[in-house]
């Protein structure tokens, strides 16, 4: 069931997720289009999330945006300091020059990074975790992950897990999506684009998520005629044969990556699964460390949790009886 509407306010709005940053010239969503989209969101009880361009919006836009319940997704490079101060999600593309950056309390930060930068910047990230409440690491080149990176990725995660244990120990339950989400979750918590979440783009059309905006052929309706998602069942987890039996609940299950790698929105590429399971296993080791260090109490939800470490990536697709690997 649809719950969220993402509105990309401008063609140039930076990416907050796996897909690349826009290369388009700035072009705002027409005010009338925005109004129609928001009206619909109110009628259908959708929570709205706005993705902003880096420049400051005209006043009439700010007023319209303010008329609905919403959350703001903003790049750290935004020229609008007021917006930046109030935004729920702040997107960072580089860890350079963040030594003195003041991470606001209670805010979620998204770090979009390549896999190699992530591995290189393990030290920098370890310095940031004590100063941040929540960090989502989002990889921009999942397709490049290969088996030769497995060991290094697992090691990098274990190092970060050590920092997290230390932070818990000093009463700072930092959240790092790659490691803490899986142990805090009770069920699958994926992106769910196309099922729970749909995106309105500046051309007045709906897309499964902003990543699909690169080609208007991907549109799934428009503000005048409403939504028209064909084969909507394929965006639901019960129609995703590999994922529905998977226990890597923190996985984004990115349907855009799925389509790029396997041509099917409901089937993940191997890279996503392998990375996610290395995270899942590192999360299991983190939980064990927290337990051994007797510091579970900080987040009551962790009491009684178990998450078995499964060496050898024994997850859905690798034990698939139909021979899929």
């Amino acid at each position: 069931m649809l719950k969220y509407l993402i509105v990309q306010l401008d063609d140039s709005a930076p990416s907050f997720c796996h897909y690349p940053d826009s290369e388009r010239e700035p072009k705002l969503i027409p005010l009338d289009t925005l109004r129609k989209g928001l009206l619909r969101s109110m009628k259908e009880n959708l929570t709205v999330q706005f993705i902003y361009p880096d420049y400051e919006l005209p006043n009439e836009y700010a007023a319209l945006i303010d008329s609905v319940y919403h959350a703001d997704i903003v790049s750290v490079k935004s020229e609008n300091s007021g917006l930046l101060a109030g935004a729920e999600v702040i997107v960072i593309n580089s860890l350079e020059n963040l030594e003195n950056f003041k991470f606001a309390e209670g805010k979620a930060y998204v770090w979009r990074t390549s896999i190699s930068d992530f591995l290189k910047n393990n030290g920098k990230l370890s310095m940031i975790l004590p100063r941040i409440d929540r960090l989502n690491v989002v990889f921009t080149d999942v397709a490049n992950f290969n088996d030769s990176l497995k060991v290094n990725y697992a090691k990098a995660l274990d190092k970060l897990a050590e920092v997290i244990v230390a932070e818990y120990d000093r009463q700072h339950p930092v959240q790092l999506n790659l490691l803490t989400d899986r142990i805090l979750l009770d069920e699958m918590n994926n992106c769910n684009a196309g099922d729970e979440c749909i995106t309105l783009c500046p051309d007045g059309r709906y897309y499964i998520c902003p990543a699909f905006y690169s080609d208007s052929k991907n549109a799934v309706g428009d503000v005048n005629n409403g939504l028209n998602v064909k084969n909507p069942q394929l965006y639901r987890i019960n129609h995703a044969p590999i994922c529905r039996t998977c226990d890597a609940w923190q996985c984004r299950r990115c349907v855009w990556l799925n389509r790029n790698l396997t041509l099917e929105v409901n089937t993940p590429g191997r890279q996503q699964c392998v990375m996610t399971h290395l995270e899942r296993n590192a999360s299991a080791r983190l939980l064990e460390n927290l337990r051994n260090n007797k510091i579970l109490g900080l987040t009551k939800v962790l009491y009684g949790r178990t998450l078995l470490y499964l060496p050898g990536l024994l997850f859905g697709f690798e034990k698939c009886g139909r021979g899929c690997k």
Partner: peptide
Amino acid sequence: ENLLRPFLT
């Protein structure tokens, strides 16, 4: 192998 996955599952 990724492109085979939908067929095999």
